[in-house]
């Protein structure tokens, strides 16, 4: 167990700058999730931390050591890969012990660790099987077991659940959460799935195009997104974004919504963001903003209404209950004033 910090980390492949000026402090025992769209550099960052690729500039420290020049094995990390990366010709036990042999551990210690990890992950009956005789979920547990037996300071996970089917993904997610409570190790977890991020993380790091957009607890990101990117990335369906003009300390949209603003340049363009679940929907005339239903996605208890405002703007609102409106219905909306987000012309939260 150890803290981990990244200081002004950059990574380039040739002339392509993949990571730019990443600084991040992770506390001992914290579960940090890196999220971001595919290709934003999450895996690259994880590989830098693991020592699989050299950094271009900046420093990485684990515990009190700067580890930039250490081999992966010397960093006291363990990594779980999306493809599991089990050695196909070795059985489950050999997969878990292969690395330990090179660490020069005594045999009793090795078997103690394997016993403990396999008990934790219910792998006892599978120890002599080859990876090809395991199901996807079992393989994933072996991969996690191989990480656990190393007793690392930091666990690194690279999208470990994305090759599992939906129901297995949920149960393994819960198991991972349980494991973190049990082991209390520092964990860094990469995913592009915001539900995984929200449910697992102590703290989420949202990345985009090689930069950190925001760091915070799941609820901070949900309620106080630092910018339009985070606002759009966290939450499903996406937050509605309406353009507005700032006049007399008030931002006004095309369909007649006005929001008081402190500060900001007079006459500048701003964006108002409202999540679908933060609208109140009623019959025609009941609320200030009229809208027509264009499409209804029924998910059961809730439905997503795709609507067109009288300004022509498109938006989504959430409907609770079974009697959802139909296409073509005219309705009216109001926004919950406590859940309105304002962003300036550069997309930064006001």
């Amino acid at each position: 167990m150890a803290k981990l910090s990244l200081h002004q980390l950059s990574k380039s492949y040739g002339s392509a700058e993949i990571l730019k000026d990443i600084s991040l402090d992770i506390k001992n025992g914290e579960f940090v999730v890196l999220v971001g769209p595919s290709g934003c550099g999450k895996s690259t960052l994880l590989r830098l931390i693991a020592g699989l690729d050299p950094v271009t500039s900046g420093s990485i420290s684990i515990g009190d050591r700067i580890v930039n020049d250490l081999e992966p094995a010397q960093r006291k990390i363990a990594m779980v890969f999306q493809t599991y990366a089990l050695y196909p010709h070795k059985n489950v036990r050999e997969n878990m012990t292969f690395g330990l042999k090179y660490a020069g551990l005594p045999a009793e210690e090795i078997s103690r660790r394997v016993d403990e990890a396999s008990r934790m992950l219910q792998l006892q009956d599978l120890l002599t099987r080859k990876p090809k005789d395991l199901s996807g979920g079992q393989r994933q547990r072996v991969a996690i077991g191989r990480a656990i037996v190393r007793e690392p300071d930091v666990f690194l996970f690279d999208e470990p659940l994305s090759n599992l089917d939906a129901s297995l993904r949920v149960s393994t997610r819960v198991e991972l959460s349980r494991l973190h409570t049990l082991l209390k190790s520092t964990m860094i977890y990469v995913t592009h799935d915001q539900i995984e991020a929200m449910t697992l993380a102590d703290r989420i790091v949202v990345m985009n195009k090689g930069r950190i957009e925001q760091t915070g607890t799941p609820l901070e990101l949900y309620y106080q997104p630092a910018n339009l990117f985070v606002a759009g990335f966290i939450g499903s369906p996406k937050m509605n974004q309406f353009s507005a003009i700032l006049r007399n300390a008030t931002a006004a949209t095309g369909f007649g919504l006005s929001v008081p603003v402190k500060g900001g340049d007079e006459g500048s363009a701003v964006t108002i963001g409202i999540r679908p679940e933060h609208f109140v929907v009623g019959r025609e005339g009941e609320h200030p903003h009229a809208a027509r239903v264009e499409l209804v996605e029924r998910l059961g208890e809730i439905s997503h209404l795709h609507m067109k405002l009288n300004s022509g703007e498109l938006m989504i609102a959430e409907w609770r209950g079974r009697d959802a409106p139909s296409i073509g219905d005219s309705l009216s909306l109001a926004a919950e004033t406590s859940n309105i987000h304002l962003f300036d012309a550069k997309g930064v939260r006001i």
């Binding site: 990594m79 010709h89 690395g99 090179y102």
Partner: peptide, 25 residues
């Protein structure tokens, strides 16, 4: 898969052993 070699590196397996024990088989 590249992950396999990376996993072995994270496991602390020396390069020569990665070749003979992971890749060669």
């Amino acid at each position: 898969p590249r992950d396999l070699r990376d996993a072995a590196r994270c496991d602390g397996v020396p390069e020569i052993a990665i070749f003979f024990q992971v890749i060669a088989p």
